[in-house]
């Protein structure tokens, strides 16, 4: 049984080395913000005009039911990764409420959640224990994880010796091996080669079939089409479009073309 409810979610990153923006928002031409995707609206200022934080998500609401596979799209800095981190329980909302039903595994950054000094095998143990598995459950999965990651003898070498692709495969293999009910994946999956992407897609379908939820953020339209049923488009920290993945991708692409066209005309 898995379900996600997100209600009016607001996330603000605090900024401690207080900066005063060199762009004078009082006198700058009104359209100045448009070129930066309205970025200035997302800076949180105190009364003296110092920037004290960045609003990464601003009033996002949606719900996801069991078996749905969500593709998250949006420009750089639109809040995709932040949303994933909140769903994973890392960052606490500043306002709003998030309810996640089901055991959750998130892979947001391939450099996180691994001890780079430890071997691949040791990391399987650490991550297994961290997701609340017992030693015997971990041992039962170890061979399968190693096989899927395809690391061969590298499994006994420190993770710091791995290539980015090897880290990614190991990370993905561990994350999916312990049968999470909610799987949260960020952009990096699209960095895999064709063979890995195929294997990963197969594994994701299998796992969502077992009554799970997949949330996948990516800039790769083909990856999203292959793996997702529904799309969410984040724009400047707000949810702009929620619908079937094909429609969301189409609208997102058209918007991109419009911006490029406008820039060309200017």
């Amino acid at each position: 049984m898995s379900r996600i409810l997100v209600d009016n979610l607001v996330v603000t990153y605090p900024l401690f080395n207080r900066a005063k923006s060199s762009l004078d928002t009082q006198t700058a031409p009104l359209d100045a913000g448009e070129d930066f995707g309205g970025a200035h609206k997302r800076l949180v200022r105190d009364r003296r005009g110092y920037v004290t934080g960045v609003r990464a998500l601003d009033g996002v609401s949606f719900r996801v039911e069991e078996g749905e596979r969500i593709g998250l799209v949006g420009a750089n800095g639109s809040g995709k990764t932040t949303l994933l981190q909140v769903l994973a329980g890392i960052y606490l909302p500043a306002q709003g409420r998030v309810r996640v039903e089901g055991r959750t595994t998130s892979l947001v950054n391939i450099n996180l959640g691994m001890s780079s000094e430890a071997t691949g095998n040791k990391n399987i143990t650490l991550r297994g224990l961290a997701s609340g598995r017992t030693r015997s459950e971990i041992e039962a999965r170890r061979t399968e994880i190693a096989a899927f990651a395809g690391l061969g003898e590298f499994i006994d070498l420190p993770v710091s010796t791995y290539s980015a692709g090897m880290r990614m495969r190991l990370n993905f293999a561990i994350a999916t091996a312990f049968e999470p009910e909610v799987l949260i994946l960020d952009e990096w999956l699209s960095a895999g080669d064709a063979k890995f992407r195929k294997a990963a897609a197969k594994r994701m379908v299998e796992f969502v079939g077992q009554a799970g939820i997949l949330i996948l953020a990516s800039h790769s339209a083909s990856l999203l089409q292959e793996n997702c049923t529904r799309g969410l488009w984040l724009d400047d920290g707000q949810l702009r479009f929620d619908g079937p993945i094909e429609e969301v991708l189409k609208a997102y692409e058209q918007d991109g073309n419009r911006l490029v066209g406008a820039a060309a005309r200017a």
Binding site: V86, L92, P93, Q95, R97, V98, V100, G102, T104
Partner: peptide, 12 residues
């Protein structure tokens, strides 16, 4: 394994 429910809000 029992299902787990987590609630995240500013007071969680």
């Amino acid at each position: 394994m029992t299902p787990t429910t987590k609630i995240y809000d500013p007071h969680a």
